[in-house]
Design a protein around this nucleic acid. Structure first.
Length: 724
DNA sequence: GTTGTGCGCTTTTTT
DNA sequence: AGCGCACAAC
């Protein structure tokens, strides 16, 4: 087969990677160096040049989004669908293994995936069972203890008994937590990975089967693999060692989740004869953006060493806006967005990035106010919303009475008189007789162990679930969902909630019904029914890809979600000490470096324009506080920066004058022009000064002309007149 | 026993 | 802003 077309769009090192001989391969790929391209073309090359079946390839990515995207691109290159190819996230692939081999993995067939919230509830319950005080044993920290040990592959049973009382108690909680999960068939996110790893490790037949099946293994974002993920990979690549890892140590941003950058170094040691290829040419960003990002990341120690370069244009300076407060910041960002769109650009060429999801709210407010369509990634995702989780809990309980997390969630939602005391009675019974909440509840009712009032309320709940189940037997998934949402009383319950919040929740519930309508059930590739399949989908893909996915809209997301994406215009908001770098990372050098890498990731998302901003006063957690600009801003050399201060008519509602920042007039102070002042040009007419950069005869000025729009002019040639 | 309300306290990033 | 907790009201 002629495969030469595969190489047409690749540079020298990319080609080398794509067509590398079999064996271990490590690709150190800088931001925007064509990493995804190399991975997809490598897969295409394996299929076309080596005539490998797509079924014998395993490709691992970090997000569902990345995996969908890659599958699409491969199909595009190959010209035929590769549905049978194993491609997905570590979690998704592990889940697939466990579903297929639930018996061997010692799980019930209907095992259920818990999200972080369910897990936290369960931790709290275990703490309560053990009589431990939550103020002394913060549930979040206990959760972290459990997860970080699982990420290292350490089970409670394998832990050496500790001398330290506190440590011993934590181990005990961990042990009880595991027992609980095992009894109820509950699997948390990390358990998916660990369980799948143990399955492969302990079961020779299965391990051999999969080792033989997957002739080639490819892994994206290798710098973000944790200990058990890497072990999982090594186990599968065991025989042939045809493993290609692609990563960038400068983009390792998941250390807090147990990711080990060291895996990159370890890879070389584990696989002797590893071929290493570096991709250092950047095709994404302008030279200015790239140089600035390089300057920031250079402040980190212990890098593998890699300097990105580009043949591309210098591009315009990175803009820096010192806002008065977060509203001023949002208004500035959004008026810049409007201008960009007015110039004929698409809205989806724009991303607003921030450190923490809470920051999205203000941007959303202003975007709504200005009628600009937008889409928020991450954060409060659809399937994670309270009302949606309530509805899903009803569906789960109808599907599987023994789902304790669901029972706990909705036994008293909407309120029906099942209070804490009653639930505690059920919980104690569960603990003593080792059953599920549902069964314990039936037994208590049958044996009349409850007060008549409690029995009445609880009986109502039991009857409701049974009735919902009976009534919906013959229904399709959307009909069933609609029926349940209505007759569970959830709609009525949330209608009572005051303000817009309640209305939004009701809307979301209706949205859930339409989500089930859009959910296409793949009958051929599934052993279960549509409801079960939909619930699994909801558990693993927390609601990316809602409705207006294809609409042209502005993209809002956290820096973490932005990894792997690129946009012509990028805003990096909230560059303040304490927010970014985050307060909780400032004191620890290692964590601070991770924040810096996060900044690097953010900056390198930008293709043409990068705009940074910070607020001098920010309302955080309901408190207003004065902030300092982020140290990362200082780490960008001045020559790449242009500071903007808008005053007067462009941004109306802001009292900019009240704050005195030292950075206001760093540039252009010798030119006689001020940001925001009005000027007249012989040809372009009147306009407002937006920006100034450079000194002396090279000094340039950016003016927004009423008729001609935005222009950059060299001051010494432009012959501008100040308008009084 | 259960529900509603007001108070004080913590507050990141994701599968 | 969201959660647990204490206290008053049904």
């Amino acid at each position: 087969m002629d495969v030469s077309h595969i190489f047409d769009d690749l540079n020298e090192s990319q080609r080398e990677a794509v067509s590398a001989p079999e064996g271990p391969l490590l690709v150190l790929a800088g931001a925007g160096s064509g990493k995804t391209r190399v991975l997809t073309y490598r897969i295409a090359w394996l299929v076309q040049a080596l005539s490998l079946s797509p079924l014998s390839i395993l490709a691992v990515t970090f997000t569902n989004k990345a995996s969908h995207e890659m599958r699409g691109r491969i199909e595009q290159i190959l010209g035929f669908p590769v549905g049978g190819m194993w491609m997905g996230t570590f979690h998704g692939l592990s889940h697939r293994l466990l579903r297929a081999h639930w018996q061997e993995a010692d799980l019930p067939q209907a095992f259920e995936i818990m999200d972080a919230e369910d897990q936290l509830r369960l931790v709290k319950r275990v703490l309560k069972d053990l009589g431990l005080d939550e103020s002394y044993w913060p549930p979040k920290q206990v959760q972290w203890f459990i997860n970080s040990h699982k990420e290292e592959g350490i089970r409670a049973a394998n832990m050496a008994p500790s001398q330290d009382d506190q440590q011993r108690q934590l181990q005990n909680v961990y042990l009880r937590y595991e027992e609980f999960c095992q009894r109820l068939g509950l699997v948390d996110f990390t358990e998916l990975l660990l369980r799948a790893l143990e399955l492969l490790r302990n079961n020779d037949t299965l391990r051999n089967r999969y080792q033989n099946r997957f002739k080639h293994i490819l892994i994206d974002e290798f710098q973000d693999t944790n200990t058990i993920q890497y072990q999982w990979l090594k186990l599968l690549a065991g025989q042939h060692q045809n493993i290609m890892a692609v990563g960038d140590d400068d983009q390792s941003i998941y250390g807090w989740r147990g990711a080990k950058v060291e895996n990159i170094l370890q890879f070389e040691k584990d696989y002797s004869g590893t071929k290493i290829i570096r991709l250092e040419q950047n095709y994404r960003s302008t030279a200015t953006i790239l140089n600035a990002a390089n300057a920031v990341i250079r402040h980190n120690d212990g890098r593998l060493g890699k300097e990105l370069w580009t043949q591309g244009e210098e591009g315009s300076a990175i803009k820096l806006y010192a806002a008065y407060n977060e509203y001023d910041e949002a208004r500035f960002v959004i008026s810049s967005i409007e201008r960009w769109v007015d110039e004929g650009n698409r809205r989806d060429s724009i991303a607003v990035l921030y450190r923490s999801n809470a920051q999205s709210r203000v941007f959303e407010e202003i975007l709504i106010e200005r009628g600009i369509p937008y889409r928020v990634y991450g954060g409060f995702r659809f399937f994670e919303r309270q009302e949606i989780k309530d509805a899903l809990a009803y569906l789960r309980l109808i599907n599987n009475r023994d789902s304790d997390p669901s029972f706990e969630r909705i036994a008293n939602v909407p309120t029906r008189g099942v209070g804490n005391k009653t639930l505690d009675t059920v919980r104690i019974r569960v603990r003593d007789t080792q059953t599920s909440m549902w069964k314990a509840c039936l037994e208590l009712l049958q044996q009349q162990k409850l007060t008549s009032r409690a029995a009445n309320s609880l009986g109502q709940f039991v009857a409701l679930i049974e009735r919902l189940d009976a009534d919906t037997q013959a229904m399709t998934l959307p009909e069933l969902t609609e029926h349940v949402v209505k007759h569970s009383g959830l709609i009525a319950h949330y209608q009572k909630e005051k303000g817009e919040r309640g209305a939004a929740r009701v809307e979301n519930l209706e949205e859930l019904v339409s989500a089930t309508r859009q959910f296409h059930f793949d009958e051929e590739n599934s052993e279960t029914d549509p409801l079960t399949e939909f619930l699994l989908h909801a558990a693993l893909e927390a609601g990316e890809g809602q409705a207006q996915e294809w609409e042209d809209c502005v993209q809002l997301m956290s820096l973490h979600s932005a990894k792997g994406l690129e946009f012509p215009l990028v805003f990096l908001a909230g560059l303040e000490e304490g927010l970014f770098p985050h307060q909780r990372s400032i004191d620890e050098p290692g964590r601070l470096e991770e924040e810096r890498r996060l900044c690097y990731v953010g900056m390198t998302r930008a293709m043409q324009e990068l705009v940074l901003s910070y607020a001098e006063i920010r309302r955080l957690h309901g408190k207003e506080s004065y902030t300092r600009p982020s140290r990362f801003v200082d780490e960008i050399p001045d020559e790449y920066l242009a500071e903007i201060r808008m005053t007067g008519n462009r941004i109306k509602t802001v009292a900019v004058g009240s704050s005195t920042s030292s950075v206001i007039a760093k540039h252009g102070s010798d030119s006689g022009y001020k940001l925001g002042s009005r000027v007249r040009h012989a040809k372009f007419g009147e306009g407002t000064v937006l920006n100034l950069e450079g000194q002396g005869e090279h000094a340039r000025i950016q003016v927004n002309f009423q008729s001609a729009g935005n222009k950059w002019l060299v001051i010494s040639f432009a012959k501008l007149e100040l308008v009084a």
